[in-house]
């Protein structure tokens, strides 16, 4: 069964349509990247999955529950980290651990303490005295100490030093990710997570632009670098986009025969930002 099954999610804020019949599926054991520019509806999508936004239309099931109605039950099995700084600043670390242990039966305090021992975060510190990086380490320690099936990350590394960012995704991969668990992550730093994703969903103006498993990217998309004469021939094959660089003309193709392309230039697999820009070019 899918952990997240969203069909036709629609959410309007006055005249602005944040989600426009948006679909999303997260299967167990997948790391799904939800990718789009600011204001594309990413955060609204995540919020509705967590039961924090009220949809105008659409069917949504998360871990078999309707998030809007059953947020409490859902949160026993789901964890959420937003961009830094949502932990209560006035609280001491030890008190936060006590709180978690009280409200969440599946929170393992000892394992959180053990995880924090590997960091600079001391139990008697107030959260407002922690650095941004330590804040994220603490939040991660809390989340990893809960037996959850779904981890939702909303720009989790925003404003972090490069050192912490790497560490963050390493911890998530090594300590959280396993067969039955899934991760849904949004970020504007696509390159940073490109290599860990199993699936991508591109979102723009609240609509799906692309839904694909990452191992299909190289099959589906191709980037050809060619000369001016090669470009002439390639234009007949309906490129998604065309760009002139120092090395010649760069063209992006979807679903084209790669042997055909190779006759006219050098074929490579485009990265996610390149695909996104090529696809969204049509939708601007």
């Amino acid at each position: 069964m899918s952990l997240v099954q969203a069909r036709g999610l629609t959410k309007r804020y006055g005249d602005v349509t944040a989600l426009d019949a948006f679909d999303l599926t997260v299967e167990p054991g997948r790391i799904v990247g939800l990718i789009g520019p600011n204001g594309s509806g990413k955060t609204t999508a995540l919020k509705s999955i967590l039961g924090l936004a009220h949809l105008d239309a659409g069917d949504l099931s998360v871990l078999g529950l309707r998030p809007e109605k059953k947020r409490r039950d859902l949160m026993r099995r789901t964890a959420y980290i937003a961009d830094t700084g949502i932990l209560p600043r006035w609280m001491r670390v030890a008190h936060l651990l006590d709180f978690m242990a009280d409200v969440n039966p599946s929170f393992d305090r000892a394992s959180a303490v053990a995880a924090l021992e590997k960091t600079e975060v001391r139990l008697d510190k107030k959260i407002l005295t922690l650095s941004k990086g330590m804040n994220v380490q603490l939040h991660l320690a809390l989340v990893l100490a809960i037996d959850t099936e779904l981890l939702v990350l909303d720009e989790p590394t925003l404003g972090l030093d490069i050192l912490y960012r790497q560490q963050f995704y390493d911890s998530v991969l090594n300590d959280y990710f396993e067969e039955k668990r899934s991760i849904l992550v949004t970020t504007h730093e696509v390159r940073e997570i490109e290599h860990i994703l199993t699936d991508v969903t591109f979102i723009h103006h609240g609509r799906n632009i692309l839904d694909l498993a990452t191992d299909q990217l190289a099959v589906e998309f191709a980037k050809v670098t060619t000369s001016e004469s090669g470009a002439q021939a390639l234009r007949a094959l309906a490129p998604l986009s065309e760009r002139h660089t120092l090395h010649g003309t760069e063209m992006l193709f979807r679903g084209a025969d790669q042997d055909d392309l190779a006759r006219h230039g050098e074929v490579a697999t485009p990265n996610l930002p390149e695909i996104f820009v090529a696809l969204v070019g049509d939708h601007l």
Partner: peptide, 20 residues
């Protein structure tokens, strides 16, 4: 206050209902 400092997002990420 917790909506202002955004910690509401944390409080709502724990299994306690809004009524509680």
């Amino acid at each position: 206050d917790d909506r202002k400092d955004r910690s509401v997002l944390f409080w709502k990420s724990v299994p306690a209902s809004d009524a509680e």
